[in-house]
């Protein structure tokens, strides 16, 4: 399916101007990742609540560019209420897309808006900063389950 650039651009702008789940919580049961060391300028924190193999909630906050903000916002919506295995498959496909490899576009829904970010090598970090945080927290939750 050919993706209409105008629609994709509007998706990014919508999530940048009206980011979803952009508020941190102080409730119990959340893991947290502060992503500030990868680049000079984006500074975001991602929280997630993973219970019984289900991603019950993901939220974030911080100061970041259009691509960081919108990609993290879209991610929070995509993985919510998914099982860990489903979320891992989505994340896996997202990173494949960013790396300009073959990927399953149906799994990624609005996140396909970032399919062209890989062309600007210096911005790949922006498009993946929130996703890396979640991937890391999923790994942590799995390690806990193995203990």
């Amino acid at each position: 399916m050919a993706l209409d650039p105008t629609i994709l651009r509007d998706i990014i702008m919508d999530h940048y101007e009206y980011p979803r789940n952009k508020e941190l919580t102080e409730k119990d049961g959340y893991m947290s990742r502060h992503m500030a060391s990868d680049s000079c300028i984006d500074d975001i924190t991602v929280q997630s609540k993973i219970e019984n193999g289900i991603i019950e909630d993901v939220r974030f906050d911080g100061v970041a560019c259009t691509i960081s903000t919108a990609s993290t916002s879209i991610m929070t919506e995509l993985v919510k209420d998914k099982s860990i295995d489903e979320a891992k498959e989505i994340i896996d496909n997202y990173f494949k897309m960013i790396d300009q490899q073959e990927y399953d576009e149906d799994l990624l829904e609005e996140a396909v808006a970032f399919s062209g970010v890989g062309k600007q090598a210096n911005r790949i970090n922006c498009a993946t900063i929130g996703w890396k945080a979640l991937r890391d927290m999923i790994n942590e939750s799995e390690e806990k389950d193995h203990e």
Partner: peptide, 10 residues
């Protein structure tokens, strides 16, 4: 503009 800043990715 915000549009042009995002357009560079398409």
């Amino acid at each position: 503009t915000i549009e042009n800043c995002v357009n560079i990715f398409f």
